[in-house]
Amino acid sequence: MKFKKSITDADLSSAGDDFHILWSIKKSLELLNFEKAGIKAITIEGFEKNLSRKIDFSGENFLGIDLTEYFGGNDFKSSESIVISLLKYSTRRSNENFTFSKLYEGKKSSSYDGLIIHRLATIFKTFLDEFGRDEVISKIKLVSNRSVNALYLNQITQIQNFLIRNKRALSFNAVLNDFLKY
């Protein structure tokens, strides 16, 4: 008989908090660099205060940000690139990869507010509305520390390559239908 350790919900929450703290400490140590394009600033649980107040006055749009890293500058304007992390940690499912459906799982089945994909999309859209597509795509990278199923990553790469080659108006459903067979 295989013994499976049971972890209380409080311990699960604490493990996630511990992970966030350790991740932030690791990133803080990376501030000790002399590279021009190296990490120059970090913000924990959000985005730089002045800009955040301006473009997210409600505080709702940046709820998914666990850590922001600024490379080559101290803020959005002066940075060459920015990495925004939405950290996920699981003690029960540490070996499971994200699937497309897991990105759409929230804490409440009746609401989309807690969905990972919704939070990432809200963050991206907030920056897009303020700075425009070209600047956002060239500067901002949204990441999560949890792995994604390799088959899904391959499908996303194939769709990206298809869209790069076909620079015209396309129905996204038509594009998806071409890739459903894979």
Rank of each mutant, 00 (worst) to 15 (best):
Y152D: 07
A10P: 01
R53A: 10
G38I: 13
F19C: 10
E30C: 15
I7A: 02
G46R: 11
N145C: 02
Y104Q: 10
L86I: 12
G16Q: 12
S58D: 07
E130I: 13
A150I: 05
A150E: 15
I44S: 01
W23V: 00
A37Y: 11
K5T: 15
F98I: 10
L63Y: 02
I82Y: 10
F19G: 10
K5N: 04
S78K: 12
F57P: 10
I137A: 03
I123G: 00
L153K: 12
G46K: 13
F131I: 10
L115D: 09
I21H: 00
D17R: 07
K40L: 09
R146A: 08
V175L: 03
I7M: 11
E80D: 08
E48T: 12
Q160D: 10
S90P: 05
V148H: 04
N161V: 01
R168Y: 09
K141P: 08
E96A: 12
L142I: 11
L67N: 00
E35A: 15
K125G: 00
T157I: 12
A10L: 05
S85C: 13
N145M: 05
V136S: 03
A15Y: 13
F19I: 03
L22W: 02
S171P: 00
R53M: 03
N95L: 14
D11F: 00
D66K: 03
L86E: 14
T122S: 07
K49M: 01
T99G: 01
S111R: 06
L142H: 01
K54P: 04
K2L: 06
I117D: 01
G64S: 04
F127A: 08
I116R: 07
L142S: 02
A150N: 05
S24R: 08
K40T: 03
L51R: 08
A174D: 11
I84A: 02
F162K: 07
D66S: 07
A15G: 14
L22R: 13
I42A: 05
K167N: 09
S147D: 11
L12P: 07
T91G: 02
F127S: 11
D178A: 08
E80P: 00
N61S: 10
E45C: 05
N74T: 09
K88Q: 06
G38Q: 15
H20F: 11
F179H: 03
I21M: 09
F19Y: 13
Y70V: 07
R133P: 00
K54L: 13
I123V: 12
E69N: 10
L87T: 04
K107R: 13
L29P: 10
E105P: 01
F34I: 15
K107W: 01
A37Q: 14
F131T: 08
F3Y: 13
E80V: 00
S111H: 02
A169R: 03
L151Q: 01
Q160C: 13
F162Q: 14
L115Y: 06
F98V: 05
S110R: 08
S111K: 03
R92F: 13
K40E: 04
E69Q: 11
Q158C: 06
Y182T: 04
S28R: 02
T126P: 06
T91A: 10
K181H: 02
W23S: 06
N177C: 07
F172I: 14
S101F: 03
